[in-house]
Simulated assay, not measured.
Amino acid sequence: MYNIINTKQSPQPIGPYVQGVQINNFVFISGQIPININSEIISNDISKQTEKSLQNIKNIIEKVGLKVNNIVKTTIFLINLKEIDKVNCVYKNFFIQNNARYPARTCVEVSKLPKNAKIEIEAIAIKNNL
Rank of each mutant, 00 (worst) to 15 (best):
K52A: 02
K118C: 03
S10V: 03
I14N: 08
K82E: 12
L130Q: 15
L66G: 02
N88S: 10
A125K: 01
Y91R: 07
Y91N: 04
I23C: 11
N24R: 12
Q12H: 11
Q9Y: 11
I84E: 06
T75M: 13
M1D: 13
R101D: 15
V27A: 09
A125P: 06
I29P: 00
I23W: 07
Y17H: 12
I57Q: 02
N69C: 01
T75C: 01
N38G: 06
I124D: 06
E122R: 15
N56I: 01
L130S: 15
N3Y: 09
N3C: 07
I33V: 14
I76M: 00
F26C: 07
N116E: 12
I71L: 12
A123F: 06
K82I: 03
G20M: 02
K63I: 05
V90M: 02
I35F: 05
N44K: 11
P16G: 09
N128R: 12
N88V: 00
I71M: 07
I79S: 03
P11D: 07
N128C: 15
E83L: 13
N44F: 10
T7G: 08
N38P: 01
F77P: 01
G31S: 14
C89F: 02
I71Y: 00
N3R: 15
C107I: 13
T106E: 14
Q55H: 11
A123I: 04
G31P: 10
K127M: 08
I96K: 11
N116R: 09
N24C: 10
S10F: 06
F94E: 09
P16L: 15
Y91G: 01
P34S: 15
I71K: 01
N80S: 05
I79V: 15
K82D: 11
N93T: 04
F77A: 09
R105H: 13
V90P: 03
A104F: 12
K112N: 12
E83Q: 14
E120R: 10
I126F: 10
Q97H: 14
S43L: 09
N88H: 08
Q19G: 10
K127E: 13
N6Y: 11
N99C: 11
I57W: 01
N38V: 03
E122D: 14
S47D: 04
V21Q: 11
N129G: 10
I96T: 15
K52T: 13
G65S: 11
E40K: 12
I84V: 10
N129P: 08
S53T: 04
Y17A: 14
S30W: 02
S47I: 00
I84A: 05
K115D: 05
L54M: 07
V21C: 12
Q22H: 08
I61D: 06
Q9R: 10
P13I: 02
T50R: 00
T106F: 13
Q9S: 13
P103H: 12
L78M: 13
I84R: 07
K112P: 00
A100S: 15
E120T: 08
